[in-house]
Design a protein around this nucleic acid. Sequence first.
DNA 1: TAGATTGTTAATCGATTAACAATC
DNA 2: TAGATTGTTAATCGATTAACAATC
Lengths: 213, 213
Amino acid sequence: MEESKVPLPTLERLATYLRYLNESTNRDEVTISSARMEEATGIHAAQFRKDLSYFGEFGQPGIGYKADELRQRIAAILKVEDTQPVILIGAGNLGSALLGYAGLPQHNFPIVGVFDNNANKIGYKLWNRTIEDIADLKAINRELKSQIAIVCVPNAAAQKVADQLVDAGIRVILNFAPTVLRVPERVFVRNVCFVQELMVLSFFLSPGLQAGD
Amino acid sequence: MEESKVPLPTLERLATYLRYLNESTNRDEVTISSARMEEATGIHAAQFRKDLSYFGEFGQPGIGYKADELRQRIAAILKVEDTQPVILIGAGNLGSALLGYAGLPQHNFPIVGVFDNNANKIGYKLWNRTIEDIADLKAINRELKSQIAIVCVPNAAAQKVADQLVDAGIRVILNFAPTVLRVPERVFVRNVCFVQELMVLSFFLSPGLQAGD
DNA sequence: TAGATTGTTAATCGATTAACAATC
DNA sequence: TAGATTGTTAATCGATTAACAATC
């Protein structure tokens, strides 16, 4: 399982397959073929088989894949069979929305700690969870043992927070601040930027046209 | 400007360049070279020049790019020089957070309408904006003339909402529901899925290790 | 002019798709 | 067995990077 040679797009698609297999409405499918997966996710059947091939043999020629086994194996690859505790930095609007989002614990990503640097927030509760002082991050995470952080702080604070997270033993960061975070090579960052997504979409609008034209 | 042959990764990077150029803290740079842009964004200098080359000549050999002119030209390419009104579907936690996010209007994407199907929300205000009935979407958007929609509804409702959006003249959709939306070819969709991002990151964790080990 | 940096071409790299022998 | 579908190899496609003549 030479992880270093797995393409990133493959990992992203694995997550898509897993999300599909996890959906309760699909739990009645006992076996699933690559053609069926293409139908469900829009990802080419050959691509699906190729993606899996990085990790061994999964299916039965002539039959397909046992849905439940496939789900378990992809979950194992992505290391989400067991709960992965997540900490959240930044108790603003977005942080609050994420804390209230049931999809995270449902997919084995419970938020186990919330941190902020704002004295008006520290000690108060958000969704029934006490907001901790970011200064105590390292000490508290010695207990929480989280390796995953979600960063929802303003741009200006993001780099400092990233440094603190690395110091506290965090290994991967989901960053909502629209900044390039500088972290050691061993730490992985993924950025989500709403404005950037809208800019890309905006390109596809026809110039000068408005809805209804 | 053969739009159809511009690679999607190029558009995503253009948005990154623009975000950098838009940052107030960088407004003192009068000219900027591709090497400087690499430093700032992590994107290879050759890649930067190649990306721009799809849209004509921008810079001065030996000197670089005039920062302000570059900003304007990229903004024009992405069609964000002028305000692009956006409508928001789903007045839940995430929708509320997006509505309160100052970054959207700051980048010329003001949210001009909010819709929901929940009778307990319709008519009430969120961030001082009245929540409209999704049933009135088409009629109201005849006035709003928005071409961009952000979808923050539960999975089960997403496809129906997408159909209504298409019917109301929406051309591009930023979808936060973890479902594959079926839309006509002329409509563009980008998906943002928090759980998927976390799954990809989770892959990079070492098995069995915890923070502090 | 000399030094710097662009815009573009060509080379490399990597990812997607097609095809098909293996096999349930 | 015949039909279906996998896993993998090879072919295609596309994107990134290197190199350099053009030029400010």
